[in-house]
Design a protein around this nucleic acid. Sequence first.
DNA 1: ATGAACTATGAACTTAGGTTTATAGCAACA
DNA 2: TGTTGCTATAAACCTAAGTTCATAGTTCAT
Lengths: 119, 119
Amino acid sequence: MKINEVSKRTNLPISTLRFYERKNIIPNEFVKRDENNYRVYAEEIVEFIEDIKSLLSADFSIEELSLLLNQQLNLSYEEKRIIVEQKIKEIEDIQRRLNKSKKFLKDILEGKVNFQTKC
Amino acid sequence: MKINEVSKRTNLPISTLRFYERKNIIPNEFVKRDENNYRVYAEEIVEFIEDIKSLLSADFSIEELSLLLNQQLNLSYEEKRIIVEQKIKEIEDIQRRLNKSKKFLKDILEGKVNFQTKC
DNA sequence: ATGAACTATGAACTTAGGTTTATAGCAACA
DNA sequence: TGTTGCTATAAACCTAAGTTCATAGTTCAT
């Protein structure tokens, strides 16, 4: 699978796919090169990138993801566990905040937020 | 209450408080000026800013928030409702993604993610 | 076999969300 | 009354996360 197809299937621009690779969040196993130096992707890349997208849209920075995924670094299980558990805590915190936000938004609609000009 | 106290109570740098004001996401009712042009905040600002923080850390951009909160614009109830309901949908989508992300992270720990060097 | 479409790289550019700096007017306590 | 600290503004600066550009090699349909 070439980069154009990955781009279409993941809805990420080609430039972003290349950018992510430069940032070391695309494991080597998923990207080889053909005789013209074109990237050749494994099928699994699509699902993997969907996961990456979720993490990035949620709470992870590229740098944090890179820390976790970059094979060069070769982190121990213990090191990964600490990062991941910390991150899961952060996600749970965001989930709480999101629920508060939903309530705040609904309050805006109902005119309960006191700065509002009356509707 | 002066800016320094708001900063301490909300854990936002003074520069950020001024920045948010410039971006029109702090309703006028909450910030007056004294005879020296110093900002004087109402008590409610603290809770309000906590809500703002939640929304920003969740999914809102400053520009979107400004659209909703800027009184100069004077949006109708209908216009606000559309924005808010759209946003609530987006939040619910993020919540689903977060649950997926938690699962992905746990899979990384358990070595279920196939690019992983075995732990 | 040639032009349109696809691929590559490095470097410059962009945007959002702040932060820092330079400069200056009050304040408050010793 | 002076000096340390808080406040103000405008403008420059910064970082993350991409995007665009310039240049060049490859491929595929006609």
